[in-house]
């Protein structure tokens, strides 16, 4: 879809045209759903996040400025914000037990990027507790720094670092043992 077509879609959406809104949704739904899957525990949560994200996209579309960047860049930020808001809203209390960290060091040669399918990686990521997963996504996937994450999530910088470290320890085990269930047996999560 070229820039002109996108601008036509945007104008239609701004006028409340349902066909244009549907076309914009169809155009970006897979990319945004993949984004939501990374922040969610399962596809049902991801669907909720996607819905809330797109509602926000349509409501805030007037604030998009094409001269400042591509639509996808703007939408991505809006969707991530919707995911974070969803996590905040739905995460009242989690009792998570994660005893013993970084005891089994996975060696450099143990893991290689070609060994794991995206589906496996997503599955490992979704096994993480919300806090760990959110920090990991923001830092590793989106490229935010710890001070920025601390501000976004209203936590301390040390907490951000600590949660990232714990997330990586968990993921290393997943990569080594192959089955997240083996790892989650040590992770008692009350949801």
């Amino acid at each position: 879809m070229d820039d002109h077509q996108i601008m036509v879609l945007i104008n239609g959406c701004l006028n409340g045209d349902r066909k244009n809104q549907r076309a914009l949704f169809d155009c970006y739904k897979r990319a945004t759903f993949a984004l939501c899957l990374r922040y969610a525990r399962d596809k049902f949560q991801a669907q909720d996040m996607l819905q809330e994200g797109f509602i926000k996209v349509f409501k805030d579309l007037a604030s998009y400025n094409a001269s400042k960047g591509a639509l996808w860049t703007w939408m991505r930020r809006v969707i991530i914000n919707a995911c974070l808001q969803y996590i905040r809203k739905n995460r009242k209390f989690e009792q998570e037990c994660f005893i013993g960290e970084e005891t089994d060091v996975v060696q450099y040669e143990d893991v290689s990027s070609s060994s794991y399918s995206p589906r496996d990686l997503l599955s490992y990521l979704q096994q993480l507790p919300n806090g760990y997963r959110t920090v990991f996504n923001l830092h590793v996937m989106e490229g935010y720094t710890h001070p920025e994450i601390a501000e976004i999530l209203n936590i301390s910088i040390n907490t951000s670092k600590s949660q990232l470290s714990k997330a990586k320890a968990f993921l290393r085990k997943c990569l080594k043992e192959g089955n997240p269930e083996n790892v989650t047996s040590k992770l008692a999560v009350t949801r």
Partner: peptide, 11 residues
């Protein structure tokens, strides 16, 4: 490497 595996695998 952990970061790179996930970044590349899920991008």
């Amino acid at each position: 490497r952990i970061e790179r595996i996930f970044r590349e695998g899920l991008s």
